[in-house]
């Protein structure tokens, strides 16, 4: 597919003896927001870890912009233009907001441009600019999430993997985070998103990807997935087919 930025080809992987990704195959379109949904344990977060080189694959291939990136380290993925914002709190609580941001640019080869990049980023996030020199632990949960997103953007990634950004945030903050993601799409950045809040996420997404038991069940436009009666059933725990 010509407009595909990321492809997973029969990816198998897991933790220890447990297999989570069971031949996951998918293709993510460039410049679009794709939301990954699926019941707990479907392998959504594991898929992100596999893409970002945090989980060794047992078999299968991952292609980014047509290049084989299977077995790449996180550092190599950053260099290729991918950033990953994991689930939960991922700031360094005892460092200042500014220093947290700066750490987003560790992988930057030419560190001389760093102060300008940080300044520009702070301009885009006034709340963070206000607290730039406070300890990051003084930020609210939502502000911490904004900090993580801003930190991820410091390297101008082409693809952002963002896992459950809305967890624990107020509805207003969720709107803010989603607004940022939409603005990024406007700039041509590809976003791959995992969201429990599937309905709201699918509303702003272009495409949806439904995972179950580590395999792709449905790949379609977000609108079609929203209208699909099987989705509700999947989330009620019925499964698309009998398990085992």
């Amino acid at each position: 597919m010509s407009d595909s930025i990321l492809q997973l080809d029969a990816v198998v992987g897991g933790y220890g003896k447990m297999t989570i990704l069971n031949g996951t195959t998918t293709s993510i379109r460039r410049g679009r927001i794709t939301t990954v949904i699926g019941p707990n344990g479907a392998g959504k977060s594991t898929m992100f870890k596999a893409i970002f080189g945090l989980l060794p694959l047992r078999s299968g291939r991952i292609l980014f912009e047509g290049r084989d990136v299977t077995g790449h380290t996180p550092r190599m993925m950053l260099d290729a233009g991918v950033c990953y914002v994991p689930q939960g709190r991922n700031i360094f609580p005892e460092l200042s907001v500014r220093h947290n941001l700066e750490l987003g640019a560790v992988a930057l080869k030419d560190q001389s441009g760093l102060p300008d990049r940080v300044a520009a980023m702070l301009k885009g996030f006034p709340i963070l600019a206000e607290k730039a020199d406070s300890q990051a632990s003084t930020l609210s949960g939502g502000q911490q999430k904004l900090l993580e997103v801003a930190r991820g953007l410091l390297l101008d990634p082409k693809l952002i993997l963002i896992d459950e950004p809305s967890i624990g945030l107020s509805p207003l903050m969720v709107q803010e985070v989603f607004g940022i993601l939409k603005a990024l799409r406007g700039k041509g950045v590809t976003i791959l998103l995992i969201e429990q809040n599937a309905k709201q996420a699918l509303q702003m997404s272009d495409y949806g990807l439904v995972l179950e038991l580590g395999q792709t069940r449905i790949e379609d436009t977000a609108a079609n997935i929203r209208a699909d009666p099987r989705i509700a059933q999947l989330f009620l725990g019925g499964g698309l087919q009998p398990i085992r």
């Binding site: 950053l78 994991p86 700031i91 005892e94 460092l95």
Partner: peptide, 16 residues
């Protein structure tokens, strides 16, 4: 410090 406070995230950001 980043490595001490959160090694997983440090690795994700490319800290050696």
């Amino acid at each position: 410090q980043a490595t001490a406070q959160n090694p997983t995230v440090a690795r994700i950001l490319g800290v050696p």
